[in-house]
Amino acid sequence: MNKLKQISVYGILIVSSIISIFPFFFMIVSATNKSVDVSSGKLLPGTNLFTNIKNLLATVEIGQALLNSAIIAVTTTVLALLVASLAGYGFEIYRSRAKDIVFNILLLSMMIPFAALMVPLFRMFGTISEIAPVIGIDTLASVVIPTITTAFLIFFFRQNTKMFPKELLEAGRMDGVSELGLFFRIYIPTMKTTYAAAAIITFMSSWNNYLWPLVVLQSPKNQTIPLLISSLGSSYSPDYGVIMLAIVIATLPTALIFFFLQKYFVAGMMGSIK
């Protein structure tokens, strides 16, 4: 009985993993093929990898785009985690009726499609450009600033804080730790897995963010990776081998970050702290 159960669990996981990885596999194989072969759905590695690399480097500045995307994604992730966890913690630990109302209002902000906010937001950055051009239109900072705080992440931290053992805080207070100290010295170290999940999700959405960078960034030297890939595919006669290569390069950082952070998702991590 137990054996059977085990086999079926592995069976499900293996099949699901294969289904999940297949498009990834296709991407990598296609990066080594000619455009015509990609179109025909060839599933075997080809010999065109070096030509594709050469063509990619000759047509776009992928290095610059990777650097821009990295600066934006890392800055956003670090700042977003800090700001959102402070708020999520504040809303749950210092819960009051007034704060609950504020929280519900904040949730409203994630319910409107971004497309509806784009024009007013752009107008706002037009004004900002005149006062403080360093964070105005066509700067990397202008991509980061509106995405630092999202109700989504505050909500996530708040829901996780509901599961946080609050006795830890009381114990800290007894030992004379300040309120801010409790957050930094007890909450953050205890909630490592929550931070890890939030970091992965935030990095990923920042790395793949498309609409706002597209509108607010203008000069080629500020181009981000998704914009670069989109313009590669814009041709009447796109070179799919090169596009797939660019996509593989663009996907690797998030995949790697996940791979390294997922060690925090190990059952019983909390045990060592409790």
Partner: peptide
């Protein structure tokens, strides 16, 4: 575990174009 987790998460990071 690590392999399965990564495999099942991978679709979320795949670029929309490729997907």
């Amino acid at each position: 575990k690590g392999l399965f987790r990564t495999a099942i998460f991978l679709p979320a990071v795949t670029s929309l174009v490729a997907y």
